[in-house]
Amino acid sequence: MTGVNDSDADTILRGILRDVLGLDQQRTDALTADSGLFGSLPELDSMAVAGLLTEMEDRLDIVIDDDEVDGELLENYGNLLDFARSKRAAAQGA
């Protein structure tokens, strides 16, 4: 059950990054847990991050508080995905 949800979160998150960053499918598929985000991708400025978080809320059906957003969360794809999964599990468990 959680396995299915986990892979959903991964697919959805890659889809959001593809849309926000304008990546092609190949680059989207190539994202790994270590792929750097904020600070590594110049197009990911504060406005783009805000858009990214808002899309995560919409498409993953979660709510993200401002104080949950820090440099570590956005450091790489793995951290963001872990966060998305735990938020989703909490939202679905509630």
Binding site: S46, V49, A50, T54, V69, G71
Partner: peptide, 24 residues
């Protein structure tokens, strides 16, 4: 409200990046 929230969030993130804390 959704547009405003996103703009406020962008401002908080930019502030955080600059080492300031701004609460939405």
């Amino acid at each position: 409200a959704a547009l405003l929230r996103q703009l406020l969030r962008a401002r908080s993130i930019a502030a955080k990046e600059a080492g300031r804390v701004e609460n939405g």
